[in-house]
Design a protein around this nucleic acid. Structure first.
Lengths: 201, 201
DNA sequence: GTTAATTTTAACCAAATGGTTAAGTTTGCA
DNA sequence: TGCAAACTTAACCATTTGGTTAAAATTAAC
């Protein structure tokens, strides 16, 4: 059986790798074909253009990136426990997909509108989150802080270290790549500890 | 006087804009020539290749990005005042150069080694910083925290909101671009308040 | 006014790249 | 067995793009 039913899927995987590493401008259709073990003709037989393929991939990346954002935060009992769980799970996810943040931020800066539309199309809604934060403020659980500022703080502390991984490894951790692994492992608890200390009344 | 002595400088400015907005892969030599009001032949008369020009520009961007990093942090009396001053000045600088973070992180992900070498070549040394943080811990000023974690936290909270500007504006601030200005203005003090609360004993 | 540096014009080149085409081969399946 | 879908080969095309070249025009400076 030479025919693989999963050729289409294999192409998506290869395209994901290529786009994730090189970005839209840097990615090459030939490289995607090579990675998938096929030729360019077959690649276009399945996906009509680079742009169409990219749309699928960046959408996938964003949908991987986002659902985790709303996860634990919503369904928990205690505000602080919810925050801890969310950050732990989110950084854990990013450790397993370390190039997604760089991929998405690169494309944000390449074509902000396109990416913003995909964010919007994902159905992401931060209102429940802002309300939960406001409630925590009103309940006297945490200091008076703008929900938007807090949300951006949480995302910044979780995501940015992946975007700047080469710099952190090279400058802050003296080129010790194992130290980076340990560093991010530590952050799974350190970031929430830091944030809770910052906001807890 | 049709001849402009500052043609070379004009090219650098145009190149900075083009590379900053489009990145290395997206930038076009023709676009740089157009912005500088000259032709492609003259552009190559001054700078022999796209790569050579890019090297100058990214170096400039990094050197703008970096010195501010070590500024107030070192030369202040009080640890907390130093932290406040640094963050205020740094976010203020980024408000005036909002596309530099996106530019640099994009190129970090395009070519990590190249950018890392430029960071190293800049002479940036975080040791004084880590020592200052360790001293603050030992003096009982702040909680026991890894200097590296704290440094990454400070940078993340300051820089990431610029990298993700379109998303923050579009998703968190409901497309209100003025709100973003205000949001970042607020952060100049909010970030240090947040951090100091997080670490102060 | 001569000279050297600066600038333009305009054609040109080579390589890379996304995409197409056509003809033929292989395979799954009815 | 035969047909349709999956796949390969290989040539080909158009466009983009970084870069070059040569000749002529303009300007500064001496």
């Amino acid at each position: 059986m030479k025919y693989k039913k999963d050729t289409s899927e294999k192409i998506l995987q290869s395209a994901f790798e290529e786009f994730e590493e090189k970005g839209y401008n840097g990615a090459r259709m030939q490289a995607i074909a090579d990675k998938a073990g096929i030729n360019k003709a077959l690649l276009h037989y399945y996906y009509k253009s680079k742009d169409a393929l990219f749309q699928l991939i960046i959408q996938k990346a964003i949908n991987l990136f986002l659902p985790n954002l709303a996860k634990s935060f919503n369904e928990s009992i205690d505000f602080f426990t919810g925050l801890e769980d969310f950050i732990y799970a989110y950084i854990d996810f990013l450790i397993q997909h370390p190039r997604i943040p760089g991929f998405i931020t690169r494309e944000i800066n390449n074509n902000p509108e396109r990416i913003l539309n995909l964010f919007k199309a994902s159905g992401l809604d931060i209102k429940p989150l802002t309300q939960k934060i406001r409630k925590a403020v009103n309940d006297g659980l945490i200091d008076d802080i703008s929900p938007e500022q807090l949300i951006v703080n949480v995302i910044s502390l979780s995501v940015f270290p992946f975007v700047s991984k080469p710099i952190i490894t090279g400058i802050v951790l003296n080129n010790d790549k194992e130290a980076y692994q340990q560093f991010m492992e530590t952050r799974k608890k350190e970031v929430s500890r830091f944030i809770i200390k910052a906001i807890k009344k």
